[in-house]
Design a protein around this nucleic acid. Structure first.
Lengths: 138, 138
DNA sequence: ATTAATGCAAAATCTTTGCACTTTC
DNA sequence: GAAAGTGCAAAGATTTTGCATTAAT
């Protein structure tokens, strides 16, 4: 990624819109997360990637930032049942395929799976999220 | 539950069938888990319940036993995204409702939700499990 | 007797937090 | 300068492990 000499305007925009100060660390993370389409990352992965790209920050800051982004609705968390949690830049409702061996996460697209609530579904429930994970050995 | 003076025959049967020695601890856990229909438990919950019922064992043994049961296919694990994992005595495919506030887990019955794979689903995947969790605030 | 299981405490993870220091506004 | 963010190390929490002891076959 190279040094961030001048902040990328769009990273600042994203952060401003979320009422977060555009610090060097956040701008770097936003750039990694959003510059090339949607991504699934674990905190650890993102931290290492940031370091590799010359961004100087701590793992705790990565956790804090990902959790802030989650709370602000910019990202969402993916529950895999693996060792660590993942975060997804795509906040639209969709399921995931979790590859147990590699620990990788992929989206389930609309033409793969159909999920519908039926009349028997309790209508009073205040749903905060629907997790669909297909675990595969491959 | 009272003292287990003489082992319940059916708990021994379940353990024998799974090639596990019917120890006092395992028989007690099997009894709590299977004597009254299907259950969802966390290790901690089950541990406390066992203690309350006069069963003398350690939390580590509860974890070990639940994991053995999972590997042997007697139980399965439920991924909730909450702080701890849950184990389910019902191994048939079905989803769960997770109540974030209480940490309780309930089954999703067949008349609540319909899930179907569509033609676009990758047929070569070696699926080890499908997790469907509806998180609710209530 | 032989073999397996248990208990305990300690370790291993992943994740969060407290506080002094730094950066942004 | 005031307020917010960061880094670090330390704490928390859940789960696993190592090993001496105990129990089951």
């Amino acid at each position: 990624m190279g040094k961030i000499a001048r902040p990328y305007a769009w990273t600042v925009d994203i952060l401003r819109r979320a009422n977060l100060r555009p610090t060097r660390q956040r701008m770097g993370l936003v750039r990694l997360l959003f510059e090339n389409g949607h991504r699934h990352v674990s905190a650890e992965e993102l931290y290492k990637e940031a370091c590799r790209n010359g961004l100087d920050l701590s793992l705790a800051t990565v956790y804090n930032t990902l959790n802030q982004f989650k709370e602000l609705g910019i990202m969402r968390e993916i529950v895999t049942g693996g060792e660590c949690s993942f975060f997804d830049t795509n906040t639209a409702p969709h399921g995931h395929i979790f590859y147990e061996q590699s620990g990788r996460v992929e989206d389930i697209s609309d033409d793969m799976l159909s999920v519908q609530t039926l009349p028997g579904f309790p209508s009073h429930l205040d749903i905060s999220g629907i997790e669909i994970v297909i675990r595969v050995r491959g």
